[in-house]
Deep mutational scan, measured.
Amino acid sequence: YETDHQDYCEVCQQGGEIILCDTCPRAYHLVCLDPELDRAPEGKWSCPHCEKE
């Protein structure tokens, strides 16, 4: 299903190369994640907010 994702990072509120959560509309820079990621994850990815739930 399609979600309207943010076009900015949930953490720093800036645009650029962001990865999109497959569960919610949030988006993140790899370096803004904690722990940060070296590269975009393959397959489905859930953001830290969704992982907690």
Rank of each mutant, 00 (worst) to 15 (best):
G16S: 13
D38I: 04
E51G: 07
C12S: 00
V11K: 15
E2F: 15
L30G: 11
C24I: 00
L37Y: 13
P25C: 12
V31T: 05
E36P: 11
E42H: 14
Y1P: 03
E36I: 08
A27K: 03
P48R: 10
H29M: 01
V11R: 13
G15F: 15
T3R: 14
T23K: 01
E53P: 02
K44D: 04
L20I: 13
I18Y: 14
D4L: 13
L37K: 09
P25I: 05
C24R: 00
D7T: 11
H49E: 10
D22A: 04
H49A: 07
L37Q: 06
C12D: 01
D22Q: 15
E2W: 12
C9D: 01
L33P: 03
I18R: 09
D38Q: 04
C21G: 02
L33D: 01
V11W: 05
R26I: 03
I18V: 05
D34T: 05
H5G: 15
E10C: 12
R39I: 14
E42F: 05
W45E: 09
E10S: 13
C12Q: 00
P48F: 02
L37I: 07
Q13L: 10
Y8F: 13
L30F: 11
G16Q: 05
I18G: 09
K44T: 05
D38H: 13
G15T: 13
V31Q: 11
K52F: 04
S46P: 04
E2T: 15
C50N: 02
G43S: 11
C9F: 00
R39A: 13
L30S: 06
V11C: 14
R39C: 06
D7V: 10
C47A: 00
E2C: 14
I19A: 14
D22G: 07
T3H: 03
R39K: 11
P35A: 12
R39L: 08
E51H: 03
G15E: 06
C47T: 00
Q13F: 12
A40H: 03
D4H: 08
T3D: 07
C50W: 02
R26E: 09
P35Q: 06
C32Q: 01
Y1W: 15
P48T: 06
C12W: 01
Y8E: 13
T3M: 15
E2V: 06
G15M: 13
E36R: 12
K44S: 13
S46R: 11
E17G: 06
R39V: 05
K52E: 05
Q14N: 12
Q13W: 04
S46F: 09
C21F: 00
H5Q: 14
R26G: 10
K44Y: 03
L30M: 13
L33S: 05
E42L: 13
Y28K: 02
E53S: 03
D34C: 04
H5R: 13
Y28S: 05
Q14D: 07
A27W: 05
E10Q: 13
D4W: 09
L33E: 04
Y1I: 15
P48H: 02
T3W: 14
Q14R: 12
E51Y: 02
D7K: 10
Q14Y: 03
C9E: 02
G16C: 05
E17I: 04
Q6S: 03
E17C: 11
D7S: 08
K44P: 05
P25R: 06
H49Q: 11
L37N: 07
E36G: 11
P35C: 09
P48K: 09
C32S: 01
L37P: 08
C32N: 01
H5D: 00
E17A: 10
A40R: 08
D22H: 03
Y28Q: 03
A40F: 03
Y1D: 06
H29G: 01
E53T: 07
G43M: 11
C9K: 03
L20C: 12
G15Q: 03
D38W: 04
P41S: 10
G16F: 08
H5A: 15
T3Q: 10
V11T: 15
L33K: 02
E2S: 14
E51S: 07
Y28D: 02
R26H: 07
C12K: 01
R39D: 08
K52H: 04
P41E: 09
I19T: 12
G15I: 07
Y8Q: 15
A40D: 12
T23R: 07
T3C: 10
V11G: 15
E10R: 12
D7H: 11
V11N: 14
W45R: 06
R39Q: 07
Q6D: 05
Q13H: 13
K52Q: 04
W45H: 09
E42P: 08
E51K: 07
